[in-house]
Nucleic acid binder design. Structure first.
Length: 644
RNA sequence: GCCGAUGUAGCUCAGGGGUAGAGCGUUUCCUUGGUAAGGAAGAGGUCAUGGGUUCAAUUCCCAUCAUUGGCUCCA
């Protein structure tokens, strides 16, 4: 009988170790540095504690902080550490769940009759640091269901007991570090000593098991790192995000506003914001016209019957803005929550032939949805917003090609706006819960395969998620990464076999018989409001030159040069360059500062010298003095910058 | 919608049971200037709204509205 176990490493090599060896022993045999950094392992495809004894034959992969698995485990263990600190400071606290998340971890706890706020974070953080420094090992133990129930009954923790009830005997494990024992599947990092930098971030309410009928627990979010430096960097990232917040910049740059009197979630576009938005709309309109879309305009309200036909009334009517009544008995109108029903009526306005298809109807359509009050957020979640909407009516055979064309359009738009980093999410139906959706199995299958094939053909990075489809069809959502690495969901393309059915849309085919068209909904920006919010944060308020509300500002050195400044202004305006003159009686230094703060791309300084030689002194935002140029030379320079 | 926080001048914020303060901005005057803040004087607030407690409420209590951190939701 061999006294050795066989371990296959990711590079395919097989090594032998003594029986009873752990992943940590394997790491140590490779290098001491690796052993120091190893946080967790994957053994035969299952994620394991690095200290756990390996089976006689296994494949092994080791994870450190540089791996997603390593980070998740690190944060999961940090959640336990926080729980230990909470238990020691607030005895009697009941614990819910404490998982890792994308950036850190949280723990849902029930403080019973105590209250905790972010003011208590210091003391809690310090306790965590103290416990971390004890270097306690995270120890795994297998526990019978009966013992597990006994333990948490004595501890009087109803949440853990509820979790245990749902587990199978023989599959229950506890983890202990220091004096804290938790029900947990694991795995965990070797010891608390690895957690060097700790920051608690926010406290919030969260329902037990995400169900609003359950008790609301206190959720504490935190983040930890193996090095202090990484925490510092992360906190700087949070600061940067705060600086870019579109709500802050929108106010400072006078792009948009909200008014309590107008109503929550109803954005009001100020002149500068309107300039940005109109330019974006024009940009999109031009692209669409080139691609065979036809622009339409439909009313903001429609008779209730329209939405009964579309199905939106049954699905959302009760939770929407309520019907608008007229002096006529029984006559009711709805604020439109979607543009598609109107577009279906345009389709129906005359008989259609297969020769008319695809019919592409586009509209910057403003829609109104009564979002829950707690959901409203800046421009990203509002109650009235404008979609860059279009509906493509086509034959089943045309779906894939149309889909590909839309993908190409969306990618073109993203690139033009500086979003180089994007992926797509394919949202399919949840096969376990078909009752949530309308439409036949056959149609769903067709639509889903069209999306999958189209994305494959364009070689897109995609992720497929079951259960995320709209109720009427599957969809493809684009996610972009912004300049500081955050992911946002933007444009969407959705196949819809349902509305053509409900509106009884038809076309006459080559065979002279009636057929049902398919509809594709698509919105590259999604909504103008949300898109501009994301764009503001992406570029930190420094819009690309072509979108900038003011492309330049002329700064006369003194009042004597106002007349020359006006001449420069009309010259540039005549060359399609937009801007204004700062005629305040301030020193140039002050005018420059104000222009820099308001992020105007070019400052054009004019004084005695410039007036005499018909030139301008050019200063670029964030870059400084570019020297003196003739008006023509600046126009050339500007137009080159515009094309970049 | 639910839990927590917040709401004071145009903006950012301090204050506090006896009807309010700073900085920036704005207005006027002086200054007419050269690449990130020249000087002086003034105006500006039913302290979110509605109730209640109190001799007295902007301050304490309740409700509403709005904003915000989360949860749930998202055509």
């Amino acid at each position: 009988m061999s006294e050795k176990i066989k371990v296959t490493l990711p590079d395919g090599s097989v090594r032998e170790y003594a029986v009873g060896s752990s992943s940590m022993d394997v790491a140590l045999s490779i290098s001491e540095g690796l052993a120091r950094n190893v946080l967790v392992a994957k053994v035969n495809g299952e994620i394991w504690d690095a200290g756990r004894v390996l089976p006689t034959m296994c494949t092994l992969q080791l994870f450190t902080w540089n791996d997603a698995e390593g980070k998740a485990t690190f944060w999961h263990s940090s959640a336990h550490l926080m729980a230990e600190a909470i238990e020691s400071l607030y005895p009697g606290t009941k614990f819910g769940i404490g998982p890792p998340i994308d950036n850190g971890f949280y723990y849902d706890v029930d403080f019973v009759d105590q209250r905790i706020s972010s003011e208590d974070f210091d003391i809690l953080e310090n306790k965590m640091k103290e416990l971390a420094a004890q270097n306690n090992a995270y120890e795994r133990s297998e526990v019978s269901k009966a013992d597990a129930i006994k333990y948490f009954t004595e501890k009087q923790d109803p949440y853990k007991l509820e979790l245990i009830v749902g587990l199978n005997d023989g599959e229950i494990t506890f983890y202990q570090q220091g004096n804290f024992v938790d029900l947990c599947r694991g795995p965990h990092i070797p010891d608390t000593g690895k957690i060097k930098a700790i920051k608690l971030l926010t406290v919030a309410g969260a329902y037990w098991r995400g169900n609003e009928k359950n008790k609301q627990l206190t959720r504490i979010y935190g983040i930890t790192f193996p090095k202090q430096k990484e925490l510092t960097e992360y906190l700087e990232f949070l600061e940067e995000a705060k600086k870019r917040d579109h709500r802050k910049l929108g106010k400072e740059l006078e792009l948009f506003m909200f008014s309590e009197k107008v109503g929550g979630g109803l954005p009001i576009w100020l002149p500068k914001g309107t300039m940005v938005r109109e330019r974006l709309e024009k940009f999109m309109r031009t692209l669409q016209t080139e691609r065979g879309y036809q622009q339409v305009i439909t009313p903001h309200i429609g008779r209730i019957e329209l939405y009964k036909t579309s199905g939106h009334y049954d699905k959302y009517g009760a939770d929407s803005f309520q019907a608008i009544k007229t002096p006529n008995e029984g006559e009711e109108y709805f604020l439109k929550p979607m543009n598609c029903p109107h577009h279906c009526e345009i389709y129906k306005s005359k008989p259609r032939s297969y020769k008319d298809l695809p019919l592409r109807l586009a509209e910057f359509g403003t829609v109104y949805r009564y979002e829950q009050s707690g959901e409203l957020n800046g421009l990203t979640r509002v109650r009235g917003f404008t979609q860059d909407d279009a509906h493509l009516f086509c034959t089943a055979e045309q779906i894939k090609e149309e889909f590909i064309k839309v993908i190409d359009l969306v990618i073109h738009v993203f690139k033009r706006l500086g979003f180089e980093n994007y992926t797509a999410q394919i949202s399919l139906r949840d096969p376990e819960n078909k009752s949530k959706y309308i439409g036949s199995d056959e149609n769903w299958a067709k639509a889903e395969s069209a999306i999958i094939e189209a994305t494959a053909e364009r070689d897109m990075k995609t992720e497929t998620v079951l259960g995320e489809a709209a109720f009427y069809g599957p969809k493809l959502d684009f996610m972009v990464k912004d300049a500081i690495g955050r992911s946002w969901q933007l444009g969407t393309i959705q196949v819809d076999y349902n509305l053509p059915e409900r509106f009884e849309l038809e076309y006459i085919g080559k065979d002279n018989l009636k057929h049902r068209p398919v509809m594709i909904h698509r919105a590259p920006f999604g909504s103008m409001e949300r898109f501009i919010a994301i764009l503001i944060e992406h570029c930190s308020g420094n819009f690309p030159l072509w979108l900038s509300p003011e492309q330049f500002i002329i700064l006369p050195v003194s009042e004597k040069y106002h007349e020359y400044a006006q001449n420069v202004l009309s010259f540039l305006n005549n060359n399609d360059i937009r801007g204004l003159v700062d005629e305040r009686s301030e020193k140039v230094g002050k005018k420059i500062r104000d222009a820099e703060v308001s992020k105007v791309p070019f400052m054009l300084i004019v004084g005695e010298k410039e007036a005499a030689e018909q030139s301008i002194s050019v200063r670029k935002h964030g870059a400084g003095d570019l020297g003196t140029l003739s008006l023509e030379a600046f126009t050339d320079y500007f137009n080159k910058a515009l094309a970049e």
